[in-house]
C-alpha cells in the first residue's frame, strides 16, 4: 500500500500506476453533479470559479449529514461518468486528480493524459468505512446545494486504487478480462 500526500505533484503522479492501492493523506475538495455544472458554466463564460481547482484532487461525493459528535456522515464515492461532460474543461484548468467510481469517457482519459492527471477509485458502498478516514470538513462554496456543496476534506489514509493513470492505463479495461470466462458477445 503506497502512502501518498495530497495535494499531488507531477512527481508523485509519475509514480502512480493503474492498479496501485494507495492511502491518501492531506486535503482535497469535493464536488458532484450540480457543482460541476456550475463550475463548467462559469468556465464557459470565462468567469472566475469560487474555488481554486488548480493542483487539486476532487472527490465525487455527496455525504449524508453528520450525526452529533461525528465529523462527517457516510461519504462513499458516486458514479464518475456523470461528471464526464464537464471534466476535460476542469482538467485543462489545472485539476490534477479525481476520486470516484466507475468508467470514464475516452474524452476524459485523453484530457487526463494531456494534462498529466490521475483517476482513483474509492470503494462504492463502503461509505461508513471511508468516513473514518475523513478528519475535518469545511464548506467552500455552493452551500445552497446541500449535500452537493463543494467542501474541503482533510483525509488521513483514505484507501483508494489508481484505476486510470497519467499514461491512460485503465484497469477497468484490463483487470476484468483476466477473470472473464464467458464467450464475448
Amino acid at each position: 500500500m503506497k502512502e501518498i500526500t495530497l495535494p499531488l505533484t507531477d512527481e508523485i503522479i509519475d509514480t502512480l500506476h493503474a492498479g496501485d492501492s494507495v492511502l491518501l493523506t492531506g486535503t482535497l475538495i469535493t464536488g458532484r453533479d450540480a457543482a460541476h455544472k456550475r463550475l463548467y458554466e462559469l468556465a464557459q463564460k470565462k468567469e472566475n470559479l469560487p474555488v481554486d481547482i488548480n493542483g487539486e484532487v476532487i472527490y465525487y461525493v455527496g455525504p449524508s449529514p453528520a450525526k452529533p459528535n461525528y465529523t462527517v456522515g457516510s461519504a462513499g464515492p458516486t458514479s464518475s461518468y456523470r461528471m464526464d461532460k464537464y471534466t476535460p474543461t476542469l482538467l485543462d484548468m489545472g485539476l490534477k486528480g479525481m476520486i470516484g467510481k466507475g468508467a470514464r469517457s475516452q474524452a476524459v482519459i485523453d484530457a487526463m493524459v494531456k494534462n498529466h492527471c490521475v483517476y482513483f477509485a474509492a470503494i462504492g458502498g463502503a461509505a461508513a468505512l471511508i468516513a473514518k478516514s475523513i478528519k475535518a470538513e469545511e464548506i467552500l462554496c455552493y452551500e445552497d446545494l446541500g449535500t452537493e456543496a463543494i467542501r474541503r476534506y482533510t483525509v488521513e489514509k483514505f484507501p483508494c486504487i489508481v484505476v486510470i493513470d497519467s499514461m491512460g492505463n485503465n484497469i477497468y479495461k484490463t483487470e476484468p478480462l483476466k477473470y472473464r470466462t464467458m464467450r464475448n458477445s
Partner: peptide, 8 residues
C-alpha cells in the same frame, strides 16, 4: 469478470 467494485 467485472468483480467487486468492477476492479476484476
Amino acid at each position: 469478470g467485472f468483480g467487486p467494485a468492477g476492479l476484476g
